[in-house]
Design a protein around this nucleic acid. Structure first.
Lengths: 336, 336
DNA sequence: AAATTTACCGTGAACGTTCACGTGAATAAA
DNA sequence: TTTATTCACGTGAACGTTCACGGTAAATTT
């Protein structure tokens, strides 16, 4: 049960601590012969360097924090998987933390991660204000943020092309002949919410279609939120024949609402979601959605974060994630 | 950017390191007056104790590892959420790790977590052999394992009542008049797989219903695996009118297979899954499933783990998680 | 008044590693 | 031969905490 330390190995191999350290991290300045001797001693004793002790002096812990609203939203596990896979390759470990979209919780979590000594933090869609984020960035480096544009040298952004996503949805509705379209969206006025609605509305305007606040309904970005918002919207605006949802969960909630209201999909109402989580192709009717490569968000974020750790003084450009519209049964009668 | 250390606080408050430490961890031996003085200094300087340094001497990192096959299986996020919520309450942080059911990966991950210095490890359904697990437990403490019975003082078990789960499914099929029932299950012969099948078969036998290897089809515990297994099974055993699946993902895959084969659910084939993930009530037809409280698995596991951390020499009894059958459209015509 | 206790607070050591040096021997250059 | 240079390795310090002591003054007891 007693830990094997570097001194035990040194004694066993008949060398000094430093030589053992050299053998392990092969930084040179050591002969092949003694290196072999040390490494066999390492193997025999089952020595593994103590990370806390290493961290103490190197100021690196080999850990990062991944912060998001709720792991139960299938969007996040997909991103997390990307982060984790890159992390494991580089012998990094990652803390996952839920904020429940509560600013108080998020700040507490960030503090906790900093105290923990993580080498960097990835925040997927922060719910903090710009001021709080800038303040935090002043004291901590490096940070990756998605769907949030906070201009600070310690923060690197990964932005989904939300505007184009909204535009793609609108274009498809228009092309299908819809003229009365509505939006179901997050009540939190986030960066991505604004852009998605903006892209959608702009495209409608370009085609001289009516759109104003009255066709927007809001709710929590969840199944229940989407259900309630859709029910409310379709009750008060029964002329609508197409809905664009902030994310897939809300879209699925909307689908359920339609079913409960006796509205067929897509015969009476067409629906397009956002994110294209795995669920979209499982439900029936399957859900059209604006796809974004979630796994790649994860890998890109983590890769970039590690670059920032390795080169602390470099300022990296922000990156954009493309989107694409995936059509399924919820928008198209002739779809299999 | 420079870290505020305990010495800075000590200097600012005009006391020694130790007194600052006493003020923070209020262990007594300090007057209210100086405590106040120290704490205001702490606040003014924004001091937060460095966890690595603390860990160095206390041998506690305030971190635990949560290991499972794949975060993309919705079962695990639900459990993880329970673990994380308890963790946050106790100011713990948790590493999430995917093994992809690969023993090599799992051992590597466990090693990495130990080196990281986690205070404990929760393994949800290990894919390692008993020998490897015992060996690992010999060198590490404490460990929580679900659905795996490895008898070792360092390991505490949390076991789902798999046998009863299988029995409940069988009972319901029998009650509905089915006489030709099949099983779709994991190809890995895990603890839970054996028990679920066992509970199911035993109940069939008690009612003198036919059951043998020929009505078992295996595949990966995923959508695709369930799809393939169901297609194979229903092709070769077309008399089957009911399927019991190892987990919900396989069940959903089976539903899709039925649809592709022109079989209606539940008119031609009834299906029961396992786990009762959130998805079951979203799909259409909704899926009957053996429910287990996943969130509670997480909270129980983490709570127990912390108990083990606090009282290293105590041996705790294993715990059982009850199951219940939730009926939905996939097994019942008259269900709304 | 002397002795003992109590309440606070400070000091050196330790945790296990790496970094910046220092050292001595062998080799190469003068 | 003498002086540099290189190579291989060792030594003290440092990272920021907490632990086990030790010490001093005031309060209490004898």
């Amino acid at each position: 049960m007693k830990q094997v330390t570097i001194n035990d190995v040194a004694k066993a191999a008949g060398v000094s601590r430093q030589t053992v350290s050299r053998a392990m991290n092969d930084k040179g300045e050591i002969s092949e012969e003694t290196k072999e001797r040390v490494l066999t001693a390492v193997r025999e004793l089952g020595y593994r360097p103590n990370r806390m002790a290493q961290s103490m002096v190197t100021r690196r812990t080999g850990t990062v924090g991944l912060v998001f609203s709720d792991i139960l939203n299938p969007f996040f596990p997909e991103v997390a998987r990307g982060v984790q896979d890159v992390a494991r390759e580089q012998e990094y470990n990652v803390f996952l933390c839920n904020t429940d979209d509560d600013p108080k919780v998020e700040t507490q979590i960030l503090q906790s991660l900093v105290a923990q000594g993580v080498d960097g933090i990835i925040i997927l869609g922060s719910c903090l204000g710009a001021k709080a984020l800038l303040e935090f960035a002043d004291t901590y480096h490096p940070i990756i943020m998605t769907n949030r544009f906070v201009n600070h040298p310690n923060i690197n952004q990964l932005i989904v092309d939300n505007i184009r996503g909204g535009a793609l949805a609108a274009e498809h509705f228009i092309q299908q002949g819809h003229t009365q379209v509505g939006i179901i969206t997050n009540e939190n006025i986030s960066y991505s919410r604004v852009r998605r609605v903006q892209g959608f509305f702009n495209t409608l305007l370009q085609h001289n279609l009516p759109c104003d606040e009255s066709v927007i309904a809001t709710g929590a970005p969840t199944l229940a939120g989407g259900y309630a918002a859709a029910k409310h919207l379709l009750t008060h605006q029964p002329q609508l024949t197409a809905l664009f949802a902030y994310n897939d969960l809300m879209a699925l909630g909307a689908m359920r609402a339609c079913r409960d209201m006796g509205l067929d999909i897509p015969e009476h109402v067409s629906i397009i979601g956002f994110d294209d989580i795995h669920l979209t192709s499982i439900v029936s009717p399957s859900l059209s959605s604006v796809r974004v490569d979630k796994y790649m968000i994860g890998t890109k974020a983590m890769t970039r974060l590690l670059e920032m750790v390795a080169r602390p003084d470099t300022i990296f450009p922000w990156q954009e994630m493309p989107v694409e519209l995936v059509l399924r049964e919820s928008t198209c009668l002739t779809f299999s």
